[in-house]
Design a protein around this nucleic acid. Structure first.
Length: 443
DNA sequence: ATCAATGATTAGTG
DNA sequence: CACTAATCATTGAT
């Protein structure tokens, strides 16, 4: 700093001595011509001025202010000023040329993108729904889980508000500060040489500073959103049991398609709709397709794992569906059991009469302790129930409610187990003579 | 407090 | 991508 000043002084005096148009240019009339020789007076004058300038910082504010004013009005001022400008021009170029051009900070862009994606920085109301949509999409497509969302959305709105107020505050402060600085610089530019470019640069610096502050804000906002997100996802894990009716519907489908409990996409949709409708009174359990999928996934695996445990339920639903079907098609059943003509797969033909079955199963379940046998028999019967149902639907046109019989690509494997499972079905059941005909669908 | 039931999630498979 | 199997985490009953 000192060096620079020294250099400038040197240059200044050099220039002056070189006889630049120090005095001629600006039409400031010479004060009173009290100097002796021109050159001498000027030199001394300049020396005086320089001295004043150099010492101005040592003085009190008022004093300095007064002195400044004095200097400002000095007759040499314009001349010195133009010289200073020139020098500055020469020295400043190198400074200016160096930096500048900051690339758009990738970090900042990341934050911005995220905030935008989360709906924090988007428009007010639209942002909310956008965020909800994003959250829903991330959650797996549930279009209508508005209950869990409300909490999330409320918090998000809160975050957004804070973010926006803070951002606004920062922006305002930035603007205020910028105008302040600009005024200051403009005011100073009468005293010292300040090019517009410099002001611009200054503004740039200020903006950078403030944007770095903003980045902190954005960062913490992002963090908040992330925390909220994770909480939300955790909360999503909080399960609400399905309603009785919904479970009933699902079970009904499951046990009536026991041989192939893989509802197609359409079937799932219909099940979901059905479950949601049945429960629709009041808030809450609207069941989505993915929930249906979950349910069937869980059901299949759990059923397979411990068939014995599901006996009761299986019988119950088998009986239930049977009963509904019975009256209509009792005869048809006999047909189908005698020869299963129309059924391409599911050759499983067991002889049991539907009305009986209920009782039989009841007794079965009572000695459930011997789970394996019981299980097998039960399963057998189950799949028969299924078969029967198919038979029914094929022979008589019984309508399932959701008939999209299309089987999923997976499903039946060689011996009636769904996938690669320890199929319970036809291991020669000790008990059921005729029933022992393997329910395998060896097609 | 304990425990089974159960919806959701995750790793791994074809 | 749909499934299975294992696992997590909550719920509701005891």
């Amino acid at each position: 700093m000192m060096e620079e000043q020294a250099r400038i002084m040197q240059a200044l005096s050099g220039v002056t001595l070189a006889g630049h148009s120090v005095q001629g240019g600006m039409g400031l009339p010479p004060p009173h011509g009290h100097e002796g020789t021109d050159g001498d007076g000027r030199k001394q004058d300049i020396g005086d001025i320089l001295h004043q300038i150099m010492t101005i910082t040592d003085q009190s504010l008022d004093e300095a202010q007064a002195k400044k004013h004095g200097l400002n009005c000095h007759r040499m001022k314009p001349a010195l000023f133009s010289v200073l400008c020139e020098i500055k021009e020469k020295t400043g170029l190198s400074i200016r040329g160096a930096q500048e051009q900051d690339p758009p900070d990738p970090q900042l862009m990341r934050l911005d993108n995220m905030l935008l994606a989360e709906g924090v920085s988007g428009p007010e109301k639209g942002g909310g729904s956008a965020a909800a949509a994003a959250a829903a999409a991330a959650a797996g497509g549930g279009a209508e889980n508005s209950i869990e969302h409300s909490d999330y959305r409320a918090k998000l709105t809160q975050i957004r508000q804070i973010y926006h107020t803070e951002l606004e505050k920062y922006e305002q402060a930035c603007n205020e500060f910028t105008t302040h600085v600009m005024n200051l610089l403009r005011e100073q530019s009468r005293t010292r040489p300040i090019s517009p470019k410099e002001i611009e640069r200054m503004v740039g610096i200020i903006h950078r500073k403030f944007s770095s502050i903003q980045m902190q804000l954005k960062q913490s906002t992002c963090e908040a959103v992330m925390i909220l997100r994770s909480r939300f996802l955790d909360a999503r894990r909080k399960r609400r049991n399905f309603s009785k009716q919904a479970t009933e519907i699902l079970n009904e489908y499951f046990y009536s398609h026991l041989s192939n409990p893989y509802p197609s996409e359409e079937a799932k949709e219909e099940l979901a709709k059905k479950c949601s409708i049945t429960v629709s009174q009041g808030v809450g359990t609207t069941i989505t397709v993915s929930q249906v999928s979950n349910w069937f996934g869980n059901k299949r695996i759990r059923y397979k794992k411990n068939i014995g445990k599901f006996q009761e339920e299986a019988n119950l639903y088998a009986a239930k569906t049977a009963v509904t079907a019975t009256h209509a098609v009792a005869a048809a059943i006999h047909n189908s059991q005698a020869n299963s003509p129309t059924t391409p797969n599911s050759g499983s033909s067991a002889s049991f009469s539907l009305p009986n079955s209920g009782d039989m199963f009841m007794s079965m379940q009572s000695l459930n302790g011997a789970s394996y046998q019981g299980a097998q028999v039960g399963a057998n019967v189950q799949s028969q129930g299924d078969t029967i149902r198919h038979a029914i639907s094929q022979t008589v046109g019984y309508n399932d409610g959701l008939r999209h019989p299309m089987y999923s690509p997976h499903s039946l494997n060689g011996n009636g187990g769904w996938h690669g499972a320890p199929t319970p079905s036809s291991v020669t059941s000790p008990n059921e003579g005729p029933g022992s005909v393997h329910s395998d669908t060896s097609n």
